[in-house]
Design a protein around this nucleic acid. Structure first.
Length: 193
DNA sequence: AGCGGGATTTTCT
DNA sequence: GAAAATCCCGCTT
């Protein structure tokens, strides 16, 4: 069951550990007065030692949030049209974050369908840019403290079967087994391994 | 079912 | 100037 825990302390672990912790956790979002909740089912880890990570080249304006305290949101814009969101993890100053790649709707599915016009079911949130569109996350949310409305992260503890694979869509550090997802969950973005 | 291209901004070389 | 932590559509097997 969900328990209230301090995010910053609990998530101050290496990115690959935090990425596994975040599976099964809940994101609570308020959109136009409606409450939406989704469960995190797929994540990827990134840190400063990793050439595929935005933080690899050091603390810059874009990556500043990644070097801040754990439990905040790092949002980046990519491919000229998409946003993706990460949970900042690790000790402050380490440039670590966990990319949220897929979620499963738990409450407020109608709101997600409206924002993902023309889509339903699995297609609502089974990809990093899709779930940002569905949950109305854009650059104005960059740096947001996930302890606070309108977007909270609720940590959930419990047993879960985790599959570990290579990350998706990167060209450097391809062999790191830093992608994690919940076994048999249909909301996981299929793609490659 | 699978491949290929377009959209279009930020960052790095 | 090119590539990028992506998605969607259209065309070909």
């Amino acid at each position: 069951m969900a328990r209230k825990v301090k995010l910053a302390g609990t998530l101050a672990t290496p990115a690959s550990e935090a990425a596994k912790q975040l599976l099964g956790c809940i994101l609570e979002r308020e959109i136009d007065g409606e409450r939406v909740r989704v469960k995190i089912v797929e994540t990827e880890a990134y840190d400063q030692t990793d050439a595929a990570s935005h933080s690899f080249n050091g603390r810059k304006p874009r990556t500043d949030v990644m070097f801040g305290p754990a439990g905040h949101l790092y949002v980046y814009f990519t491919y000229g049209m998409h946003y993706c969101c990460n949970v900042v993890v690790g000790e402050e100053g380490t440039g670590s974050a966990v990319l949220i790649r897929a979620t499963e709707p738990v409450e407020g599915e109608a709101v997600l369908e409206k924002r993902r016009k023309g889509r339903a079911g699995v297609e609502l949130t089974n990809g990093p840019a899709k779930l940002c569109q569905a949950l109305a996350i854009d650059k104005t949310m960059n740096g947001h403290d996930l302890e606070k409305a309108p977007l909270r992260l609720v940590l959930v503890e419990g047993q879960k079967e985790i599959i570990t694979t290579k990350r998706i869509g990167i060209s450097k550090e391809k062999d790191r087994l830093w992608r994690f997802y919940l076994k048999n969950n249909t909301y996981v973005s299929k793609s490659r391994n």
